[in-house]
Design a protein around this nucleic acid. Structure first.
Length: 578
RNA sequence: CGGGAUGUAGCGCAGUUUGGCUAGCGCGCUUGCCUUGGGAGCAAGAAGUCGAGGGUUCGAAUCCCUCCAUCCCGACCA
């Protein structure tokens, strides 16, 4: 069939819904939120719930297209699953009771319980257990992109932490761990491609698997100072160790000092309740002190010991304790259990479960609280003066510490989590009885993995990473349009004609262009162009008419080049190459 | 969920302490004139249940009570 010549519609800014704002709405705090509001990409409907205006939707569609291509390339098949999900499935997996307030629940007219899907493990597993019965049908990779719902206690940062958001989830189904490894590697590769193609600076880090369990999990972090997640990575380029600090480990140095254990002594330390006060009072380094933090874990009170210059990593501690709830003990609780006020706790003669970090046992002649208000102990030595019930890695790794693999120093950074890949194993297939028959006719649980990308989060993370004082700077691959043409004076017919001619040339060659035909002074249009962040701006004024040369300005660098009108297509294409 | 704050025109804000005529200002919007290379100027306009409900009072944006919404810090975050 011969394709009909596509009718050309002018994308005239005067007719487009791009409501830019001069002033920043008071509700916005982070830069991406401010800029997306100001540049006319989004509007809020409720806390954490946004309408995507035309520009934002174009960006989202481009991100989705990239994701789709990479998923399909690895053999993913796209489906669309319900947002409205029956409670029965969630009861079956056990998560109806576990998920808590974050799950948005409601009833239909027959009083049946439903929820808005925060994720789709239940639905997809239900589908697959019905349709997949043989090892011959696997591996199977199914994915979907759509709105998901989590009733965050505190939505914030605009699109970065909303209650309604667009997410891509892919689920892999394999016959065994070996198959899962392959699927996992495919997704890892696909994700790297996705974020590279989107023009983002990112890093893949090892992450904590959380309550979901499972063996391997990696997070894809877009590097940005405003990011909520803290990561460390090895400075040695050949090593590539990188991890979320919740998970990160570091090399434990051996005790190199030849110090001999001295006699345990109690010293009077009035009002010295913090490590900082302690080190200046006794004139010692914080590395010689032991910090004793009292936690209430389920019904038990425990003490966590780390070196004075370290922090307790509560995620690690939580995993170590294997408890349901854990929180810092109250001041009263501490006094009751230790006999001294908060700030004077220590492991010696402390009759509760003690978990010590590896570093703690390496300190010779340490200083700790005496479990007696206004007193500390000096020359405390693990093994002699106290015996931890458990020695484990429970400290928060800090920038500058040695890499656990190559001992190079590690750097700290902040990131926005835009994707996570997860080996689920048989957690859901067991709960939901999703099985298949192997070659020998033996029934086995399907081995699953899940892999998410926060599509709408990618949009704002991209803005978070690519902006300046003037506004957004879109990477070419996901910019809402590639080029804006700005005629200086639209009342000048020659300028307008030239602008339309250039518009047609570019559009006919597949370059996404808008024509700013508004009757505004040039300054207004320039400001809007910078704010919205079109990669290229072509200005057409009297100079262009005289010389037949077009002024093309690159948003990212601010560079201006003059190009003859007849070369505009190839030149623009090369400037856009991404 | 704990702590803090805010809610007045599309956006940003003043007015509330000490109740008082017709609720203001800047930006934006409409019309006209003028201007056209970085958010111009002049003139004339439109636009508000002062978050909602109740109460006190001759009279409430303003005082009291209740509720709602939004933001910030914290806690939380398969």
């Amino acid at each position: 069939m011969k394709a009909a010549k596509q009718e050309v519609f002018y994308m005239r800014v005067s007719q487009m819904l791009i409501p830019t704002l001069r002033e920043v709405p008071a509700e916005a705090e982070v830069v991406s939120h401010k800029l997306l509001l100001r540049a006319g990409f989004i509007r809020k409907s409720a806390a954490g719930v946004y309408t995507y205006l035309p520009l934002a939707w174009r960006v989202l569609e481009k991100i989705q297209k990239i994701v789709r291509e990479e998923m399909n390339r690895e053999g993913g098949q796209e489906v669309l699953m319900p947002i409205m999900q029956p409670a029965e499935l969630w009861r079956e997996s056990g998560r109806w009771d576990v998920y808590g307030e974050e799950l948005i629940r409601f009833k239909d007219r027959h009083d049946r319980n439903f929820c808005l899907g925060p994720t789709h493990e239940e639905i997809i597993t239900d589908l697959v257990r019905g349709e997949v019965n043989s090892y011959k049908q696997m591996p199977l990779l199914l994915y979907q992109m759509q709105n998901k719902y989590r009733d965050e206690r505190r939505p914030r940062f605009g699109l970065l932490r909303g209650r309604e958001f667009i997410m891509k989830d892919l689920y892999s189904f394999d016959r065994d761990e070996k198959g899962l490894d392959i699927s996992y590697k495919k997704m890892y590769r696909a994700y790297s491609n996705v974020f590279s193609r989107c023009g983002m600076q990112f890093r893949v880090v090892e992450a904590d698997s959380g309550a979901i369990g499972g063996s391997d999990t990696h997070e894809f972090m877009v590097l940005a100072d405003s990011g909520e997640a803290e990561i460390v990575y090895c400075e040695n380029d050949d090593c590539s160790y990188a991890a979320n600090v919740e998970r990160a480990i570091s090399a434990v140095g051996e005790d190199s000092s030849n110090e001999v254990p001295s006699r345990l002594q109690e010293v009077h330390t009035p009002d010295v309740g913090t490590i900082e006060e302690l080190t200046s009072f006794l004139d010692i380094s914080a590395e010689k002190t032991i910090k004793t933090i009292i936690y209430s874990a389920d019904d038990e009170i425990i003490a966590a010991l780390v070196r004075g210059d370290r922090e307790v990593n509560e995620v690690k501690l939580y995993n170590e304790l294997n408890c349901l709830h854990m929180e810092l003990a109250s001041a009263e609780m501490i006094s009751r259990v230790t006999g001294g006020n908060m700030g004077f706790s220590g492991p010696v003669n402390l009759d509760i479960c003690i978990i010590a970090d590896h570093e703690v046992k390496n300190i010779t002649n340490a200083v700790t609280g005496a479990n007696r208000t206004d007193y500390h102990l000096i020359n405390v030595n693990a093994g002699r003066d106290f015996e931890p019930d458990k020695v484990a890695d429970i400290r928060m790794v800090q920038a500058g510490e040695a890499c656990p693999y190559c001992s190079s120093p590690m750097t700290g950074a902040r990131g926005i989590e835009v994707g996570q890949v997860f080996k689920l194993g048989d957690k859901y297939s067991r709960a939901l009885e999703a099985t298949f028959l192997d070659e020998r006719g033996k029934e086995q649980y399907i081995v699953m993995g899940c892999y998410g990308i926060g599509i709408s989060r990618v949009l704002s993370a991209c803005v978070e990473q690519n902006n300046d004082e003037q506004g957004i700077i879109w990477p070419g691959a996901i910019a809402p349009y590639h080029v804006v043409i700005v005629p200086i004076n639209v009342k000048d017919n020659d300028q307008l004609n030239m602008a339309e001619r250039v518009y047609n040339t570019l559009s006919d060659n597949g370059i996404e262009t808008v024509l700013d035909d508004r009757q505004e002074r040039p300054g207004v249009k320039f400001k809007d162009a910078d704010l919205i962040g079109y990669p290229l701006r072509i200005t057409i004024g009297s100079k262009a008419l005289e010389s037949s040369e077009l002024e093309v300005k690159k948003r990212s660098s601010g560079d201006i080049v003059m190009i003859p009108e007849e070369n505009v297509c190839e030149k623009v294409k090369s400037m856009l190459s991404y």
